[in-house]
Simulated scan of single mutants.
Amino acid sequence: MNRQQRIKLFEHQSRAYTEGTVEMINEQWIFFDEETEEAVLLDEYLHQEIEVFRFNRWKKGILFEAGKICLADEIDFLRNNDLVRIRKHLIYSLERLLEGMNDEAFIQFVTTLNSLQFSIYDCLYCYNHLSFLTDENKKNGVNFMVFDNQEQICNVQHHFCYYEKTNDRFEFTLNTGKRLVIEKIMK
Rank of each mutant, 00 (worst) to 15 (best):
N80P: 11
N80F: 02
N81K: 13
L83E: 12
L83A: 09
V84W: 00
V84H: 00
V84T: 07
V84N: 02
R85A: 07
R85K: 15
R87Y: 10
R87C: 07
R87H: 06
K88M: 09
Y92W: 02
Y92I: 08
Y92E: 11
S93V: 03
L94V: 04
E95M: 04
E95Q: 11
E95A: 09
E95Y: 08
R96A: 10
L97S: 03
G100F: 00
G100Y: 00
G100N: 15
M101P: 00
M101Q: 10
D103R: 00
D103E: 13
F106P: 01
I107H: 06
F109R: 03
V110G: 02
L113I: 09
L116W: 08
Q117Y: 13
Q117L: 12
F118S: 05
F118Y: 14
F118M: 09
F118C: 10
F118V: 11
S119N: 09
S119G: 08
S119M: 08
I120P: 04
I120F: 03
I120Q: 05
I120N: 04
L124N: 14
Y125D: 08
C126Q: 02
Y127W: 12
Y127D: 12
Y127F: 15
Y127R: 09
N128S: 05
L130S: 14
L130N: 10
L130H: 11
L133A: 12
T134R: 13
T134S: 14
T134D: 14
D135I: 09
E136P: 02
N137V: 11
K138S: 11
N140W: 06
N140F: 12
G141I: 01
V142W: 00
V142Y: 04
V142I: 15
N143M: 03
N143Q: 05
N143K: 05
F144D: 10
F147V: 03
F147H: 10
N149L: 08
Q150I: 05
Q152S: 14
I153K: 14
I153P: 01
C154L: 15
C154I: 08
N155D: 06
N155W: 05
N155C: 12
Q157W: 02
Q157A: 07
Q157Y: 09
H158T: 05
H159C: 05
F160H: 03
F160A: 01
C161F: 12
C161W: 04
C161H: 14
Y163S: 12
Y163L: 02
E164Y: 04
T166Q: 14
T166V: 08
D168R: 02
D168C: 08
D168V: 03
D168I: 01
R169A: 01
F170R: 02
F170I: 06
F170H: 03
